[in-house]
Amino acid sequence: MRTPYDFDPGCTRRASVFTWLAMASVVTTVNLAYAGENFTVSSADFSDGGKIGSRQIFNDAGCKGPNQSPSLTWRNAPATTRSFAITIFDRDAPARGWWHWAVANIPASVKSLPENASASGALRKLGAIEARNDFNIDGYGGPCPPPGNPHRYVITVYALNVDTLPLAQGRPAALFDREISGSTLGSAQITVTYGR
């Protein structure tokens, strides 16, 4: 079947130029979509891949630390973020791992938490809620692994597509994790270690 381009060689060239421009436009759009910086989290108390700060260690079960939740700062969350959540999980604990902290309903305007935000009441002032961790206490519970190899603690800040999750203070951290997973737009992680 013939097309209009069969009758005018110039049309073929023009069609090729238009096709190339359309493709260039798509490539430019894709590149612009990825031109922004990545969603990241950092702490003044430790660095990714390093050891957790001494002030974050639990104060029980053979550990003698101040048990202060870490300072955290996050940047470049998705533009449509409506709230944030944070978890700290020991991936090397036996069986299913160990939840040290889960926080939800942090307002989207917040970009950092000070050290000890859990015990100091700073999170409550923001309207955030904290889960019951695997030490069976509400709020933050720092690292305190059994003696032996160091454990890895994954700290994750989640950007969520809802203002609040249907959770209540003191519900299990695993339940927080399920609700967070269902509303996540993006996440940023750092991993730190601690051993005795």
Rank of each mutant, 00 (worst) to 15 (best):
M1S: 13
M1I: 04
T3N: 05
Y5I: 08
D8Q: 10
D8Y: 14
P9E: 13
G10I: 01
C11M: 13
C11E: 09
T12A: 15
S25A: 15
V26L: 14
V30S: 03
L32I: 10
L32E: 06
L32Q: 10
Y34W: 11
E37Y: 06
T40R: 13
D45R: 06
D48G: 11
G49N: 08
G50Y: 11
K51M: 09
R55E: 15
F58N: 02
P66M: 03
N67P: 11
P70S: 14
N76V: 01
A77W: 02
A79Y: 03
F84Y: 15
F89I: 05
D92M: 10
D92G: 06
A93W: 10
A102G: 14
P107G: 08
K111T: 10
P114T: 14
P114G: 13
N116G: 05
A119L: 04
A119V: 01
A122C: 03
A128Y: 00
I129L: 07
R132F: 00
N136V: 05
Y140R: 01
P145A: 07
P145W: 06
G148E: 10
N149D: 15
N149P: 00
H151W: 01
Y153R: 04
N161Q: 14
L167S: 01
A168R: 14
A173T: 09
A173N: 05
D177C: 04
E179W: 05
I180P: 00
S181H: 13
G182Q: 15
S183N: 15
S187Y: 06
A188C: 12
A188Q: 04
T191N: 06
Y194I: 02
R196T: 04
R196M: 08
R196I: 03
